[in-house]
């Protein structure tokens, strides 16, 4: 039986959310609003005071004359797409592997999860030392094997790929954990029925397991995409955006424009446009996924 709220209770319900709503407005909406306002201004710090002058759409027009912005945005999309696909594929592989083990799952899970628990800056530093062309561990091993030395982070063709490898290494355990949790919820009866019917492993994987854990896969995919779009630490530590602009992503570029160059108006415009573009991408992605699952 549904309980009818009195007028007083209804009022209290709305009053109760006022503190949270106020906090949300103060902490999230105000900075966003402030960023938006700055994006239409020329902002400078003079004599210790922040001064801003309304310039209309000038900052936004300048974005379209800035090839580095588009290059950085393109790198961001490649980075997110490739890293997330690789991470999920490997995460699925390892989760199935751990799920199939009869003993030692805790040990494997812990080992796979360890890179995720290390702070990204530390991860970046570890890999910078491994991949260092002059005295890195990788080249020492290659030398011992009689293979030519590699300078992955120093070359335009491979630098972004190198960062993706480190990202995958860092996040594969996280994906494994989420997917492993999904595997544990699979109805045993369905698996047993398929086994009795003599379904091959491949068929079991593609026609039973993956379809059944699709909601979990989708959650992992969205979470990781959101995280990957926030990528910064590894790029900052490993390459600083170089060589040239070959590993410049939108976040490293915003940091440079905003913090190093102190072009706050332009930096705000880039930030706002990036937020809009990413939101559009997410809505389109979500719509596609929903349409596919409806089918």
């Amino acid at each position: 039986m549904q309980h009818q709220l009195s007028k007083q209770d209804t009022l209290f319900k709305y009053l109760a959310i006022v503190p949270l709503f106020t906090l949300l407005l103060a902490l999230a909406m105000y900075p966003l609003f402030s960023l938006g306002r700055m994006s239409f201004s020329s902002v400078s710090i003079v004599q210790g005071d922040i001064g801003s002058k309304w310039v209309g759409l000038v900052n936004y027009r300048n974005i379209f004359k800035d090839p580095i912005f588009f290059q950085a945005f393109g790198h961001t999309l490649i980075y997110v797409a490739v890293s997330v696909i690789l991470e999920l594929s490997l995460g699925l592989f390892f989760s199935l592997l751990v799920f199939s083990l009869k003993r030692g799952t805790l040990v494997f899970r812990t080992i796979l999860l360890m890179p995720f628990l290390i702070p990204p800056v530390v991860n970046g530093t570890i890999w910078k030392l491994i991949l260092n062309a002059q005295f890195g561990l990788l080249n020492k091993l290659l030398n011992q094997a009689g293979l030519p030395a590699q300078s992955i982070l120093s070359q335009e063709r491979t630098a972004l790929f190198g960062i993706m490898i480190v990202t995958v290494w860092q996040w594969v355990g996280y994906n494994m954990l989420i997917l492993y949790a999904g595997l544990q919820t699979l109805p045993k009866s369905v698996i047993e029925a398929a086994t009795i019917d003599g379904a091959s492993r491949k068929r079991m994987l593609f026609q039973i397991t993956i379809p059944l854990i699709k909601p979990v896969l989708f959650v992992a995919l969205v979470f990781r995409m959101i995280h990957a779009f926030k990528g910064f630490d590894l790029f900052y530590v490993l390459t600083g955006g170089g060589p040239g602009y070959s590993t410049e992503i939108i976040n490293t570029y915003i940091q440079k424009v905003f913090m190093i160059q102190q072009r706050m108006g332009y930096g705000s415009a880039i930030s706002i446009l990036t937020i809009i573009l990413i939101l559009i991408l997410f809505f389109v992605f979500q719509a596609i996924m929903e349409r596919r699952s409806a089918k």
Binding site: L131, S151, L153, S154, G242, P243
Partner: peptide, 19 residues
């Protein structure tokens, strides 16, 4: 210079000299 000059910063130069 050594291979991978694009990843050489001042700390690498110092390390290589001292090493």
């Amino acid at each position: 210079a050594p291979p991978g000059s694009s990843s050489i910063g001042q700390s690498e130069q110092i390390a290589m000299l001292a090493g």
